[in-house]
């Protein structure tokens, strides 16, 4: 599915729309950045509550399709600008990580 479809499914707020036509192939959940770097597959949706600027570098370097900030987490200062520069999709949902992933799986989209 596309990032656009994922954003709609999660009733998510758009933090940065770099390319919402990008395909989301799979997903990964976690907040420890080295776990994400080492384990998030390319083209995945990354579900996290981590909001500091380093999420941009991690998402960019690991080729993550979209960062899904959960529990209404607000990105820290600088994150949106960096995401614009680096072409990173970021959305924010009120759902917690488990509920967000459950919704995606229940609707059979990943």
């Amino acid at each position: 599915m596309t990032v656009q479809a994922l954003a709609e499914m999660l009733s998510a707020k758009i933090i940065n729309n770099a390319d919402f036509t990008r395909q989301v192939a799979t997903g990964y959940a976690g907040d420890l950045l080295s776990f994400v770097m080492g384990k998030a597959p390319a083209d995945s949706a990354w579900f996290t509550v981590m909001t500091n600027i380093n999420i941009c570098a991690v998402a960019h370097l690991a080729d993550v399709a979209v960062i899904v900030l959960c529990e209404d987490s607000e990105p820290m200062p600088g994150v949106t600008d960096r995401a614009k520069e680096q072409g990173i999709n970021i959305i924010s949902t009120s759902l917690d990580i488990f509920s967000a992933i459950k919704k995606v799986l229940n609707e059979g989209q990943i």
Partner: peptide
């Protein structure tokens, strides 16, 4: 607190 320090840095370097 920034999400680093998981102790996976060197293992990731070796893995990739």
């Amino acid at each position: 607190s920034l999400g680093f320090g998981a102790g996976m840095g060197l293992p990731n370097m070796k893995k990739y």
